[in-house]
Design a protein around this nucleic acid. Structure first.
Length: 874
RNA sequence: GGGGGCUUAGCUCAGUUGGUUUAGAGCAUCUGCCUUACAAGCAGAGGGUCGGAGGUUCGACUCCUUCAGCCCCCACCA
């Protein structure tokens, strides 16, 4: 290695090492009973999705744990895969076909599914390739897809099992209907958005009277399906009307006026038009009061034949306009007001949902969710940050039955068959029945619907493993890392499934990642175009830089504001490590590496860095254990940059440039060994750079990798307070001199002469101070007098004089000293105030008081010395 | 209407169970440097009465109450 580029170039090394890791099969895990498993299952991205910064954050965190545990000797297994994402994928394919002039319903189920598979095969590999660019160490041999044949079967088996347990039923209910994909969706798939609408006041004539009853509505078009009017039982205004009938304008239907506690007298007019087929609340009232349920919409939310002819076949919003203008013409519209309310949108379809009465399959949740609630409450499953526990608890205790059928084709088809001949009980079976068990008819028809995507992903934590042996070994998994927005969709349901089907928790810890926002705090989204493409960022800054930056800026439980140029931070850090390596390796070309000298010629700098490293390692492991992953990056950063680069390497230079070959070898060998340690602890965060440097340090055996090297262990005996104290002292002296130099703008090329009033300084201390403070000479003795034309500093009671003959600005120096004296006097005043407070002396801990007393004497001494210096300045 | 989170330097954020002088880092700013690892760098400096008010305490960025602002989640006000 003769020429090492000055700057780290990630694009030259990343692909090379990823390929190497795959070739060496480093990420693959097999059952090994001699090792403890450490398992993570990936939150499977949508099969045709592309990588977002959210994925980057979440997969980097998983990779950090997997890589750390792998190096620590665990059998680390990270199972990757993708989700067929029923509705998301299907709507993409529908849109694509539409652009080609092809209609889903015209080509039919089979051809449509062919198109979906084609689409999946075309785009399905993209996100996987992108994840590899990020450097994640998934076991790709275990890659799974929720529509894999055997996985598909598991989903079906689960349905059948639940059906047999009596947990699944079919029923007609109001569901959230997505008119764009013409399917039911679950409550969780509806997003509510503020919308500026109107509140229309409409009067309905009361039958056999001249009176009117006035109602208010945000959705006048639904009046075509009105079958009642409700008022609060206590509302005096309407008491006389209860039991009478109103005549529905435009339709001419007689509808009953009744009372119901759901109605709030204060809102609107206090009278509510009731449309049981198109409003969940009205539905409840409809059932209680035996109202007619008139469905006025087709599946695409256009009006059907249940409305008067002039309104038929129109889009719901067209009907709204038309209804209003008719009402106006006929004098029924009283007034309209601006009104802000929340409108539910389909998460995938992006259009307002329509509450819609239809026949669907439901899963009873109450009973099966109980054990899942317990394990979170009692801490078998831990959330990080743990305040999500509350959210979880609230949802779980108010859980509703889950609508699991979707009027879609891309997914797991519901394993239910109906006999067209006897029309008895539906046949529920994993394998297709050949004949009806009741009448032997072969006229069987399978349910057209598929299952909600999440009925496949809730099995993910264990059914990604194919055999029972593997499930026994790898399950429960250790950690789940996911975005908090799928806590109900996925996390809760996985815990439910784990507890119900395997009687075991699916994972011990759940880490909820930050939500990524742009620098204005807006959520990153495709439509805003404010989300940088991670691959472009990787190409520009490097995968390691992106990984480190995003983790460094993502504190647990808080949103993170991110922009591409923040990655300069990570890039600079990578470059810093690169150059530290470059320095060591360049020296290794001329200085012999000799591991037998590793413990020879130790001085306090060596003891200090060992001490710092072991403390750092201890802190780092603790941070990872407590899921303070953001903190862990800070620990690594400051050790590498400040301790190792700024001080240790700089200190080692004076010994590396001396002429004792053995000392040179000892120092360089040690430095490189320390560097290797630091590469190891940084590796899970920045895998590519660290592998590149680790491989460059020495000739490695074929197949060796830092990924499988042994993670350092804390050696408490190397934690050395004396060495840290000594280092502290030397650093203070150097900083004092540097401050004088900086303040006086003396260029580093001008070597200074320094006098220190101290009895003794070791040879190393002298060398280090000279080197780092750029001194020409250093004189010390306990009787040194303040030289003329010198600047001064008092460090830990020790006077330091920097001779500045001919260049000193006495005014400036006086100012500097005065400022320092004022600073100390300020602090002293604070301490004295404390100490003169009897209660403090009486109540505070003895050590604290003692510390303050010590400070007082120290500061008084420093101040006096500085005052003398100031007085004698000439 | 409930629940949760946030508010510390111009910007983005640290600050562990309340007690090392005058609260830290990175970026940005200013000054001096191409010092043979790194200008993506080195050295130095300036910059914050920790959102407001009150309280607990010998002592509060840290604990409590309250107010204000911002953000999320949940909930059947048509």
């Amino acid at each position: 290695m003769n020429e090492i580029p000055k700057a780290y170039n990630p694009s030259e090394v990343e692909d090379k090492w990823y390929k190497y890791w795959l070739e060496q099969n480093i990420f693959h895990s097999e059952i090994d009973n001699s090792k403890e498993p450490y398992t993570i299952v990936i939150p499977p991205p949508n099969v045709t999705g592309i990588l977002t910064l959210g994925h980057v954050l979440n997969n980097t965190i998983q990779d950090i744990y997997i890589r750390t545990k792998r190096m620590q000797g665990y059998n680390a297994c990270w199972v990757p895969g993708t989700d067929h994402a029923s509705i998301a994928t299907e709507s993409k394919v529908v849109r694509y076909l539409k652009e080609q002039g092809i209609d889903k319903y015209e080509i039919g189920r089979e051809k449509f599914l062919d198109a979906c598979w084609e689409w999946t095969n075309k785009y399905g590999g993209i996100i996987i390739q992108q994840l590899k660019k990020l450097g994640v160490s998934c076991d790709w041999e275990r890659e799974r897809f929720t529509l894999d044949e055997d996985y598909y079967r598991k989903v079906i088996e689960t349905f059948v099992q639940l059906y047999k347990e009596g947990k699944i039923y079919r029923g007609e209910k109001i569901v959230n209907w997505d008119p764009a994909s013409r399917s039911a969706i679950s409550d969780e798939e509806v997003n509510y958005r503020e919308s500026n609408g109107k509140l229309w006041y409409i009067k309905y004539p009361v039958k056999d009277s001249k009176e009117f009853i006035e109602v208010a509505t945000t959705r006048p078009e639904t009046m075509l399906g009105d079958t009642g009017i409700a008022v609060n039982p206590k509302d005096e205004r309407y008491k006389n009307l209860i039991g009478k009938f109103a005549i529905l304008p435009l339709v001419d239907r007689e509808i009953p006026i009744f009372s119901d506690w759901h109605v709030e007298s204060e809102f609107g007019t206090g009278a509510v038009k009731v449309t049981p087929a198109h409003d969940p609340n009205d539905y409840v009232m409809g059932v209680e009061h035996n109202l007619e349920m008139i469905n006025i919409f087709n599946e695409d939310a256009s009006t059907n034949h249940n409305v008067p002819e002039e309104f038929q076949g129109l889009d719901r919003y067209v009907v709204r306009e038309k209804a209003i203008s008719r009402l106006k013409e006929q004098g029924y519209l009283v007034k309209e007001e601006n009104y802000t309310n929340k409108v539910g949108y389909s998460e995938r379809g992006g259009v307002p949902i329509e509450p819609y009465l239809s026949e669907q399959w439901f899963l009873k949740m109450e009973e099966i969710s109980k054990p899942a609630l317990d394990v979170v409450r009692n801490g078998e499953v831990n959330f990080h940050p743990d305040h999500w526990k509350k959210t979880y608890d609230h949802w779980m205790t108010n859980i509703k039955d889950w609508c699991i059928s979707r009027q879609l084709w891309w997914g797991h088809r519901i394993p239910v068959w109906y006999c067209d001949d006897c029309r008895k009980e539906p046949i529920v079976s994993v394998d297709a029945p050949t004949k009806c068990p009741n009448c032997n008819s072969k006229n069987l028809r399978q349910d057209e619907d598929v299952l909600d995507t999440w009925t496949s992903s809730w099995l993910w934590a264990y059914d990604v493993f194919k055999t029972e042996e593997e499930k026994q070994y790898y399950y429960p998994t250790d950690l789940l890392v996911t975005a908090p927005d799928i806590i109900f969709f996925w996390v809760a349901r996985m815990i439910i499934a784990g507890m119900h089907f395997r009687k075991e928790i699916p994972f011990k810890d759940v880490y909820f990642t930050s939500v990524l926002r742009d620098m204005q705090g807006r959520k990153m989204s495709k439509t805003l175009g404010n989300s940088p493409d991670p691959i472009e960022v990787i190409n520009k800054y490097g995968a390691d830089a992106l990984r480190f930056t995003i983790i460094y800026s993502a504190p647990l439980g808080q949103d993170v504001l991110f922009s591409e140029d923040k990655c300069e931070f990570g890039r600079n850090f990578a470059n810093k490590i690169w150059n530290a390596g470059r320095f060591l390796l360049m020296n290794a070309q001329t200085i012999k590496i000799d591991k037998s000298l590793a413990d020879k010629h130790l001085d306090f700098a060596d003891n200090w860095i060992n001490s710092r490293f072991n403390k750092t390692l201890r802190d780092l492991i603790n941070a990872l254990d407590t899921f303070d992953i953001n903190g862990s990056t800070k620990i690594i950063y400051s050790f590498i940059w400040n301790d190792f680069c700024d001080w240790y390497i700089e200190l080692s230079k004076s010994r590396l440039y001396a002429d004792n070959e053995e000392i040179k070898s000892a120092v360089l060998t040690r430095s490189i060994m320390m560097f290797e340690n630091l590469l190891k602890i940084a590796h899970p965060f920045m895998p590519f750079l660290t592998e590149e440097l680790w491989q460059a340090i020495e000739e490695r055996k074929p197949g060796e990798s830092i990924s499988t090297s042994k993670y350092p262990e804390v050696n408490e005996s190397l934690i050395n307070e004396a060495a840290e104290k000594e280092m502290d002292f030397v650093q203070d002296i150097i900083n004092g001199i540097r401050n004088i130099r900086g303040e006086a703008n003396i260029p580093p090329s001008k070597a200074l002469d320094v006098f220190i009033k101290i009895e003794n300084l070791s040879e190393y201390q002298i060398e280090y101070i000279k080197k780092l403070a750029k001194l020409n000479s250093i004189s010390f003795s306990s009787i040194i007098q303040q030289p003329k034309q010198s600047a001064s500093s008092v460090v830990k009671g020790i006077e330091i004089y920097v001779s500045l003959e001919g260049i000193i600005d006495l005014d400036l120096e006086r100012k500097r000293l005065t400022k320092e004296i004022e600073r100390l006097e300020g602090s002293l005043a604070g301490i004295r105030k404390k100490l003169s407070n009897e209660n403090f002396v009486k109540n505070a801990a003895k050590e604290v008081v003692e510390k303050e007393r010590q400070k007082e004497t120290d500061w008084v001494s420093n101040i006096n010395k500085l005052k003398d210096i100031l007085n004698n300045l000439n």
